[in-house]
Amino acid sequence: MSDLNTELNHAMLPHEMFSIPVPFTDYKIPVTDTVVVTWIIMAVIILFAYIFTKKLSMVPQGKQNFAEVVVELVNNLVKDAVGHHWRLFAPYLGTVLLFLIVSNIVSIFNIIPNGEQLHKLTHMEIFEHFPNFALRPPTKDINVTACLAIMSILLVVIGGIRVKRLSGWLKHFLHPIPVMLPFNILDYVIKPLSLCLRLFGNILAAFIIMELIYMAFPPVVPAAFSIYFDLFDGLLQAYIFVFLTSLYVGEVVE
């Protein structure tokens, strides 16, 4: 029982991989595995973006078709929720959608065995000192989702001020009746909190369930469950995060 407990704890919490020393001070910036996985995802997205937008032409062909379909999809999603001013918000929301899609389903690409498993498999001494690294979704770390939620609410505030000017934006706090002022202010605290916790909770819950299934019955069975918990749930949560953000933006901007 305690063995399962420690193993689950180890998988659930982000652990420090290495640290970057700050020059002229004793302080070191810890780099967790969440950050390393985020770097890998960023590299993959940048690489794909470069490949798919190379040699653009007026008449799309080949891979440019795919890129245009993706952009069109994001534009329509934002257009439905935000309305007239969608052009201002589509690039950011599309970026967040792409990042969340890749980061939520990244654990299905986790095919490289870690150092511990290699050591068990081959009994070779070298593998014992390998860093214990696995591709786990970075969104199961609450720091990542909190960051994304704060960026979303900043988008709502800045977009609102940009579109309605400062006076118009301040007026919307008194929108239906002036008595609603405290609730409207409270909105700006509750919205990012619920966005953050929703994404974190869903991904972590799916991750824990998958981890338990891996422990209970490793062959074949996890593959079937992975389709729901990793793929379907991950894609749905990425869509919901962007959908809700664009809804909040639309509420203020319209």
């Binding site: 619920s194 916790l197 929703r198 974190f200 909770g201 869903n202 972590l204 819950a205 919901i240 959908f243 809700l244 809804l247």
Partner: peptide, 15 residues
Amino acid sequence: LGAVLAEATAIYGLF
């Protein structure tokens, strides 16, 4: 939207 808002309570419990 409704399902997501209803789900939020379950997520708070889990949290």
